[in-house]
Deep mutational scan, measured.
Amino acid sequence: MSGYILFSSEMRAVIKAQHPDYSFGELSRLVGTEWRNLETAKKAEYEERAAKVAEQQERERA
Rank of each mutant, 00 (worst) to 15 (best):
M1R: 04
M1F: 12
M1Y: 05
S2V: 03
G3F: 00
G3D: 01
G3P: 03
G3E: 00
G3I: 00
Y4L: 03
I5E: 15
I5Q: 14
I5L: 11
I5P: 03
L6A: 03
L6R: 02
L6H: 02
L6E: 04
L6C: 02
F7W: 03
F7V: 00
S8F: 08
S8T: 10
S8A: 14
S9W: 03
S9H: 15
S9A: 12
S9K: 14
E10V: 01
E10T: 03
E10K: 04
M11I: 09
M11K: 13
M11T: 06
M11Q: 08
R12C: 12
R12S: 14
A13Q: 11
V14C: 07
V14I: 12
V14M: 13
V14K: 15
I15H: 07
I15T: 04
K16L: 09
K16H: 09
K16T: 07
A17T: 09
Q18A: 10
Q18W: 01
Q18Y: 03
Q18D: 06
H19I: 01
H19L: 02
D21L: 04
D21N: 06
D21F: 03
D21S: 08
Y22V: 15
Y22H: 08
Y22L: 15
S23L: 02
S23A: 05
S23K: 06
F24H: 14
F24V: 14
F24Q: 15
F24D: 15
F24W: 12
G25Y: 12
G25F: 07
G25S: 14
G25C: 09
G25R: 12
E26H: 05
E26P: 01
E26V: 04
L27F: 06
L27M: 08
L27S: 06
S28G: 05
S28H: 05
S28M: 06
R29G: 09
L30D: 04
L30E: 12
L30K: 15
V31S: 03
V31K: 01
V31L: 13
G32T: 13
G32M: 13
G32R: 15
G32Y: 12
T33P: 02
T33W: 08
E34L: 14
E34V: 06
E34C: 09
E34D: 03
E34A: 14
W35D: 01
W35A: 02
R36N: 14
R36Y: 07
R36S: 13
R36L: 09
R36M: 09
N37L: 08
N37S: 07
N37D: 06
N37P: 00
N37G: 07
L38V: 01
L38M: 11
L38Y: 00
E39Q: 08
E39K: 07
T40Q: 12
T40M: 09
T40W: 07
T40H: 13
A41F: 06
A41Q: 10
K42M: 04
K43G: 00
A44Q: 14
A44T: 09
A44D: 08
E45C: 06
E45W: 09
E45T: 05
E45G: 05
E45L: 08
Y46I: 01
Y46A: 00
E47K: 05
E47F: 04
E48S: 09
E48I: 09
E48N: 06
E48K: 08
R49W: 00
R49I: 02
R49E: 03
A50G: 04
A50V: 03
A51D: 05
A51R: 14
A51Y: 06
A51P: 02
A51C: 09
A51Q: 09
K52E: 09
K52T: 08
K52Y: 10
K52D: 06
V53C: 11
V53G: 08
A54R: 11
A54L: 10
A54Y: 09
E55Q: 13
E55K: 10
E55V: 11
Q56P: 08
Q56G: 12
Q56R: 11
Q57A: 14
Q57F: 09
Q57H: 07
E58I: 08
E58L: 10
E58K: 10
E58M: 09
R59T: 13
R59A: 11
R59K: 15
R59L: 13
E60D: 15
E60R: 09
E60T: 12
E60Y: 11
E60I: 08
E60V: 10
E60P: 08
E60K: 08
R61W: 10
R61E: 13
R61T: 11
A62S: 14
A62C: 05
A62W: 12
A62I: 15
